[in-house]
Simulated scan of single mutants.
Amino acid sequence: MTLLTHWPLAGLRLTTPRLELRLPNLDDLAALASLAADGVHDPTVQPFTVAWTDVAPEQRARSVLQYHWRCWGEWQPENWELNLVVVRDGIVVGTQGIGARDFSIRREVGTGSWLGRAYHRQGLGTEMRAAVLHLAFAGLGAQYATSGAYADNAASLEVSRKLGYREDGIERHSVRAKPAVLRRLRLTAEQWQQHQLVPVQMEGLPECLPWFGLA
């Protein structure tokens, strides 16, 4: 028997013209942790609802490892978080996540991601989210995908606009002890079909379907 016998998610691959998205191995996680330590956004702003980057570099690195391990250990078909490492030309450039609760009933996923600062403004954010949206809608039969970004996070909001998301209300948060408005976004299966900008190939999905709560 191999790891895939007990953990078929390790064989899941999403590929786009420039990127491969896969479940990270330990070497990938080490590279991702180092990328986080080097910084993933302008330190004068805080784009995340959980301010995990407002700590020392070594704490950021450790939190990346612990978060991935926690998601692996807590995986259940009715409550899952799939965090894929994003690789370009053999180099880890970031991570793209997709998750759901009671997916077999609700048919709704949420997404989140980050890139190392050296890889911003190259269109990679659009490409990697397009990959997991293809997994959600074409692979898993999702009906909706949700996302969110603070009102001043123009880059994230632009990615969502390109991919067909529509406004879905706001939330008020506290960021660094100041009020901040988070814009919720929603994408339907029909809107996704009209905004497929990136060709995506999937490998290893059939074996994983029970892990997503699907027969």
Rank of each mutant, 00 (worst) to 15 (best):
A10G: 02
G164K: 08
D28S: 01
E20L: 10
E127K: 07
L19H: 05
R161W: 09
P8Q: 04
G90Y: 09
E207Q: 15
T49S: 12
T53L: 03
Q46T: 14
A142D: 05
A149Y: 05
L14Q: 02
I170E: 12
R13G: 03
A61M: 05
L84P: 02
G90T: 13
R107A: 11
L140N: 05
D102T: 09
L209H: 14
L26W: 13
H120V: 12
W80F: 12
G141H: 09
L84E: 05
V45E: 13
Q122R: 13
L4E: 09
L82N: 02
G73P: 00
A130C: 04
R60M: 04
A118K: 13
A136E: 04
G169L: 11
A56V: 11
A145C: 12
W72G: 00
K162D: 06
P24T: 09
N25I: 01
A142C: 08
P179F: 13
I170R: 13
W80E: 05
K178R: 15
V40P: 01
E74H: 10
T49L: 12
T146E: 08
S63R: 15
Q143R: 15
C71A: 08
P77Y: 12
A138V: 11
Y119I: 01
L163R: 07
W114G: 02
L182Y: 09
V45P: 01
W114E: 04
R117H: 12
W7Q: 03
A51P: 08
Y165W: 14
I91E: 15
D89G: 08
S104M: 05
G73E: 14
R62D: 14
L21D: 03
E167I: 02
R161I: 05
G169H: 10
T44G: 01
G73S: 13
P77D: 10
L163Q: 11
A154C: 04
L4H: 09
L3M: 05
R88Q: 14
M128Q: 14
Q201N: 12
P206R: 06
V92K: 04
V50S: 09
I98K: 01
E158H: 15
R62V: 04
R107E: 09
N83W: 08
D89M: 03
Q194V: 03
A100C: 10
A151S: 14
V181N: 12
E108V: 10
R22N: 01
E81F: 05
A61R: 01
W52N: 01
F103R: 07
W72P: 00
N83P: 00
L197V: 10
Q59E: 15
R166Q: 13
S174D: 08
Y67A: 10
L82Q: 02
Q66V: 03
H6N: 01
A177L: 13
V159H: 05
A61C: 03
G169Q: 11
A10V: 07
T16G: 00
G110A: 11
L3I: 13
E127P: 01
E78D: 15
L84Y: 08
M202V: 15
R106C: 06
P24D: 04
E127V: 04
W114Y: 15
D152H: 14
Q143T: 13
V55N: 00
W69G: 00
G123M: 10
L32D: 02
S63A: 14
A136C: 04
E20Y: 00
